[in-house]
Design a protein around this nucleic acid. Structure first.
Lengths: 193, 193
DNA sequence: CGACAAACCTAACGACTTTAGGTTCAGGCC
DNA sequence: GGCCTGAACCTAAAGTCGTTAGGTTTGTCG
């Protein structure tokens, strides 16, 4: 077996692929080493420890997700942008379930301050701008949006919606309609009666 | 050391307490056995294996959550019931973070068909009835509700909202307002323009 | 050519899950 | 009381993981 000639990036990408293929819980250093044709201990040359590997996957996914969102919402605004934004999330969660699960875990401090995180936050704000919310309400709208999209996709990913009729697809459309409605008529002051 | 005289229920409850106290990831059979003053292998008399233990905690939490929701929404309807329903979720997630995390994992087949799951589903439907949605829309509303509440609490639990100003409390109120608005004006047919 | 750093290895430890088989204890029955 | 039976608990052992320590190979650059 020739040298694998790994780098930190290659290890993290392979870890993400493994998580997608065998499930996030199967993301073990030993399994990863096997797949890379290398001894487990050798991975420590590229990654500090297991938690750093998970953080790496988290950050990788963050960047990839931002990379998928950007072209999707480009040139659109309002409802169309919202649908594209959420759709990019859903596509990503389906195509990369392991990476998606990694995203659901608490982010490391370094990840929070990473460029990838900033980019995703920027894209979210860019999308929300179309709704012309008051500046002070942007945070709340962002949180509601994140909660709804992530919540829906997490429930869908772990089978909470079963495979019952009607399809989750219809519920997804309803959820996006609801978000659009809420964002368009966001309370501007005090509590509307 | 006298006999512990454990039962399956006692083991599962202790596991839930351990998860709340030390974090869900620290929920190991060995740690549980230590806490119970028993050898690890002895736990296998009460629990099939680790995954069954997690399933047990999941189901326990499901029942407890339903038990907290029922009195909260009793006698209320509409917006008030919604706030009580969601509030019970939030209280539970904060008081029992380990149990809450267990709830976020895929449910075992047996859990899906359990009475606890049915009870929680029933309470959710009971709460939603106050909004008098068309029968065929109930599923979609349930899913949106679950997505938003679970999504918000998961993000809050893993620190995604940071400890930044403004407080998540305000965002929580906004989210509930949004849900109430959406449920009150749920599209009854076709897509409203 | 020779040094140096990065990539990789073997060996070992401790923690964990799980199985197999043996021991203790309490309650019911003759 | 003596005994049987099942539940509760134990020891022992195998196998997987994560992690550290220290040694070996390999490519590159002066």
């Amino acid at each position: 077996m020739p040298r694998a000639n790994l780098t930190a990036e290659a290890v993290i990408t392979a870890a993400a692929d493994l998580a997608d293929h065998d499930g996030f819980d199967a993301l073990a250093l030993s399994a990863l080493a096997r797949r890379l044709g290398v001894q487990t201990a050798s991975l420590y040359s590229h990654v500090r420890d297991r938690s750093a590997l998970l953080a790496g996957v988290h950050r990788l996914a963050l960047g990839e997700l931002a990379g998928a969102i950007a072209p999707a919402i480009g040139g659109r605004s309002g409802r169309e942008a919202l649908i594209a934004f959420a759709g990019a999330h859903r596509d990503y969660a389906r195509r990369f379930p392991g990476r998606w699960t990694a995203l659901q875990r608490p982010a490391a401090e370094s990840t929070v301050r990473s460029g990838e995180a900033a980019r995703l936050a920027g894209l979210t704000l860019a999308m929300l701008r179309g709704y012309r919310l008051p500046e002070t309400e942007l945070v709340h709208a962002t949180r509601l949006l994140a909660a709804t999209v992530n919540g829906f996709l997490s429930l869908e990913a772990n089978g909470s919606f079963g495979h019952r009729e009607p399809t989750a697809d219809v519920s997804w459309l309803r959820a996006l309609d609801a978000l659009d409605t809420v964002l368009r008529s966001w309370p501007t002051e005090g509590k509307p009666r």
